[in-house]
Design a binder for these strands. Structure first.
Lengths: 323, 323
DNA sequence: CTGTTAGCGCCTTCAA
DNA sequence: TTGAAGGCGCTAACAG
């Protein structure tokens, strides 16, 4: 809260001996033009003579100039930054491979722009208001919300606020006009099962369950499944992490994969390729999906309100040795 | 690059019909004080009468006021944001559980402050200059650099620039005065081995190798190790992810863990607890370490230059069923 | 303790 | 096509 006092009073030079960042004024002077012309040259170059443009470009390069975001933001009323909001009911979101994919996808979408990504990790209770207020007071131009929870009012607040927002994962209380991306899990499950059937499996089991289940629950699940249905010849597991547990249990019971039992996982976010045997799985297109989220958001910020339609992605079968 | 034109020219009201964010001016008017008094009340409340302070506080609450960061930043010359820089030689950094821990740790450090976290994902070649320039032009107050690579000049550039910087992981070309946090891997390896010895193991093998090894390499490694030394009774694996592969291989060969062979992994960042059997491992204190990085950075930004000493953390044995 | 005053660096009318 | 001028919202002297 408290600001530490600035020690250099009037001097327009270096604070603490730091080489101060070049200003538009300096660029203009060096290019032999006015600030306005320099500014125009920087922002698209409309109504700027080629000569002036070249001079400004040169000056910028020589000075390694970057516009001061604060100053620009103050007048344009844009912040050139968006928030990635992570509501944090459980502590595992960040470790979830989903999240890494989300990060990558959004970064990719932002890459061709000069827009920065601000990470907003919301806290429970009181603290959530800090996030809300920050967002509502437009400290960012828009927000991507990782929406894997069901009890948060943030969704509606954001939607009502008219801050450009895109949800990754269908919001629990999805309302008309909410923009979101999601993956068609039902289709993924069906595809996986069809694959097992096509491979000749006739006794197919499944291990489902939320990702935030207690650690190791997947293991007893596999054990129980095997005990109850010893003649199982195919299993669809709702996540690769859980599938890893299943593979180990099968190995322990002497079942060969894929000869005795075929296994199909879900996610393909890193673990699947390094299991033994490599795991056949449904590739979850998180990165593409999140990139789409980013692009949707950029479009909304640019004023294309018609870009609000939800976008649904399909998981894709990746066949490896296990099935 | 190009700015879309602002449609409302002079009007001090709403653009696009949006409820405009409250300003200090409004807070002051509502509280019946001047802007300066309101400002002082907000920034620590020094030299402000209790009455004025209360009035301002009330106004702030009623208006849901948040200071405009751009305006503030313009005058204070601080941005109230720091960057998390991810140099990205390989594409896996973000998916690495290390990274999730880093994120969490830094967030925790930032939590009691109003400082925002900006994610900077550097790209190769030309693109790296964009990052450098952004940093050097002080668009952030400081930077935490995830430094798991060895060929990057960014380290030195940042250090030379005198931008407050803390590295997570010892910089390849560590120089005097560079601030970093790291974990003592040698100690971790030793502890793991000592644990196996104490448990009675006499034929101990190890599976090492960089994390960015080709997927599945860990599996042939375990296979070969087992083939070469059939009488193995203990294995230390340099990462949990690789240890998972080893567990599966052992199960396939009918070796019971931990009865026949004891296994110790390394990381404990999520996978270890959900293997079968649960994996004994060396807990890598990434979160604590990264929190320290964040705190070091905050201290540096606040001017405590003496906070530059490296800080080394120890991994800690976590005993589960596998050893 | 308080209000008045002057910019921070930039974009953007407006007049030339 | 260009430059001069004004102001975005805030903080920090300075004088009261």
């Amino acid at each position: 809260m408290t600001a530490d006092t600035q020690s250099t009073p009037g001097g327009r030079g270096a604070a603490r001996g730091l080489p101060h960042a070049p200003t538009l004024e300096e660029v203009a002077r060096r290019a032999g033009v006015s600030r306005s012309t320099a500014s125009r040259a920087i922002n698209g170059g409309l109504k700027v003579s080629p000569a002036a443009q070249a001079a400004v470009d040169a000056a910028i390069a020589e000075l390694a100039y970057t516009p001061n975001r604060a100053a620009r933001s103050l007048v344009t009323r844009r912040t050139d930054s968006i928030a990635l909001v992570v509501p944090e009911p459980d502590e595992r979101v960040l470790s979830d491979p989903y999240f890494a994919g989300t990060l990558r996808g959004i970064s990719e979408a932002l890459d061709p722009t000069d827009i920065q990504l601000v990470l907003l990790i919301a806290r429970r209770g009181e603290e959530t208001q800090r996030t809300t207020r920050y967002l509502l007071n437009r400290h960012v131009d828009g927000a991507v919300v990782v929406s894997h929870h069901r009890d948060d009012a943030l969704d509606r607040v954001l939607h009502d606020s008219r801050l450009p927002t895109v949800f990754v994962g269908r919001p629990w209380a999805a309302a008309e006009g909410m923009s979101y991306v999601d993956v068609d899990n039902e289709h993924g499950g069906r595809t996986a099962t069809e694959h097992l059937i096509a491979a000749g499996c006739t006794r197919i089991g499944t291990i489902a369950g939320p990702l935030d289940m207690a650690a190791g629950v997947d293991r007893p699940a596999a054990e129980r499944l095997l005990a109850a249905y010893p003649d199982l010849d195919g299993i669809f597991v709702a996540s690769d992490l859980m599938a890893v547990g299943a593979l180990t249990v099968l190995a322990k019971h002497g079942r060969s994969v894929p000869d005795d039992v075929r296994v199909v996982g879900y996610d393909d976010l890193g673990v699947a390729a390094s299991t033994s045997p490599p795991l056949t799985t449904m590739r979850n297109p998180v990165v593409e999906m999140s990139r789409a989220a980013g692009e949707l958001l950029l479009a909304q910020i640019a004023g294309n309100v018609d870009e609000a339609a939800p976008r649904i992605f399909q998981a894709e079968l990746v066949v490896r040795e296990s099935a």
